[in-house]
Design a protein around this nucleic acid. Sequence first.
DNA 1: CCTGTGACCGATATGCCAAGTAGTCACCCG
DNA 2: CGGGTGACTACTTGGCATATCGGTCACAGG
Lengths: 204, 204
Amino acid sequence: MTTFTPDAPARGPAEHAVRDQIIAAAHQCFARYGYAKTTVADLAKEIGFSKAYIYRFFESKQAIGEEICGSRLEKIISETQDSIEKGDSATDCLRRMFKSLTTRSADLFFHDRKIYDITAHSAAERWGSSEAYKETVREMLAEIIKLGRESGEFERKTPLDETCRAILYAMMPFIDPLHLERNLDLLPDAPQEVVSLILRSLAP
Amino acid sequence: MTTFTPDAPARGPAEHAVRDQIIAAAHQCFARYGYAKTTVADLAKEIGFSKAYIYRFFESKQAIGEEICGSRLEKIISETQDSIEKGDSATDCLRRMFKSLTTRSADLFFHDRKIYDITAHSAAERWGSSEAYKETVREMLAEIIKLGRESGEFERKTPLDETCRAILYAMMPFIDPLHLERNLDLLPDAPQEVVSLILRSLAP
DNA sequence: CCTGTGACCGATATGCCAAGTAGTCACCCG
DNA sequence: CGGGTGACTACTTGGCATATCGGTCACAGG
């Protein structure tokens, strides 16, 4: 699994109590007031240091946002991974994977809206956090397809890369936060119907 | 094919020289300055009548927008229909259908941006014009699938409705103007790869 | 009946200026 | 030296008065 920390030039020590405090404060403020309405000065006040000090640990407000966004996406990934591991076939794993990704994203939308908005913003602005998320999802999918091909569940003619790309494009409306937002009324049936279509396409 | 005129209570006579003048002026102004920047008063001045008179023919500015939007979408539909008719198999028809829809939509984006923006707005606001468009696309697709099933090209187990829905969901990123806009960098390969996946899923 | 309009209303957009915000830097302290 | 900051700048943003816009209506002329 690739790491979520963006390849940007990190500033200051990666491990530091104050850095953790900033993250904690940011998580709280972003969740409560939203990314835009939270100022760096707010975060500074929250942890009892000056604004300038925050810039010893993060090169920008966006970097903090990416960190919050990334760790939330990581949680979705790891929960999804857990669900996949309970699958008893590649078919089952694929169903579980997308079921988990869509329901957990929708959950985020309904129960942690402000954080969800950050992920949507992250996707729109192509932040490192969501690029890394997409890449990890791609890797997870490739793993399942490979498994299914080895076990004889899935066909082996189509190039693996193309298969993965096409599947992700097809699921985009339900995975990409930006698109999901507009398709909430199609949950939970639509994504499952697309997964069924995908599975038919994978038949040997 | 369903008509594009929204089921709204149309105002005034449907056939009328002045009505046509309004449409012509609207098309010109919308294409040049955009829907938002064009005022109803602008249209009135353009055709030499008063603003109030326009409301004898259209119940709102949106109704005019829907008309412009709808007729442009109708053009895409009819051109696509033409292309489909040249297909020599259901498989070919399906490829042609989506190839035509995506390239013509992208074309609209690049060469008639202001009009494209209206279609995107129409999709976002769920205007009648784009609902009708989506419905017509669904009908076109169902027709092709039925043909393919009859000729033995496509499988017959999955319910027709579900097949059509799933295919449209999967192609949404490249058909829906709202989504297409964000995926222009994936053209022209991505939609074709998804169509290939769809065709694999339709194999008997 | 049909064609056509100016005056009017409530909501929304616009322009403008003060206040706030992201980010930097020189500098302080132990 | 690492830990920490106030003051500064260039750029947005918010708020508010004002103008504009979508839409209606009563009414006029043929």
